[in-house]
Amino acid sequence: MGDLSDLIACPHCDAVYRVAQPAHGERAVCARCHTVLIAPRRRAGEQLIALALAVVVLVITATLAPFLSIDAGGQHNAASVLDAALAFSGSGALALLSLAVAAGIVFIPVTRALLLIYVLTPIVRDRPPAPGAIVAFRLSEALRPWSMAEIFVIGCAVALVKIADLAAVEFGPGFWIFAVLVVLLVVQDNFMCRYSVWKSLET
């Protein structure tokens, strides 16, 4: 049968290939369903750690800074991301939704970033993997679909247009921080070669 660690199976269609490590900037794709299997990048580890640190700092500042502010009829109100998450908290069962919103836009992106820093730092420094690194990376991968910060930003745009007739609305610093954050999250996802990470966690 040979050495199974030389083989790679496409997670989407089960096709098996013999691993031929692509050069940096190249990528190996499944011939049948075109899923990207391996996509190594030069210094990806350092870049990912830097991005993850930026994500943590930005989420925390964006959560506390005023996000949007509104003026109508002499009344003024400003809301932060935290206020938006807590919007559902007043009314019974809707409080659960508050938790879900807070998780999707704040806790899950931060948790993923922290897990990634924990997993990648020893790898980048050529040390043995951190204890529990495998569990940590698995959790980070499982959380990926539930990180919803980018959807929240588009939601802001929709909300703005909805009330633009009623009141004067202004973006606060929180909005711009969050917009930058979304770009970072997308870049982070595209930079990561999961195969390379798993490979380096294998002992």
């Binding site: 949007l68 009829g73 002499g74 109100n77 938006a84 919007a87 919103v101 919803m148 939601g155 909300a159």
Partner: peptide, 25 residues
């Protein structure tokens, strides 16, 4: 695309936290 349907829930969250103008609206 599944996650993007959440946009409506976020719009409600943003509007409910932002549009709190006492008696006006």
């Amino acid at each position: 695309i599944g996650r993007w349907s959440m946009i409506d829930v976020f719009v409600v969250a943003i509007l409910s936290s932002l549009v709190q103008l006492g008696a006006v609206a």
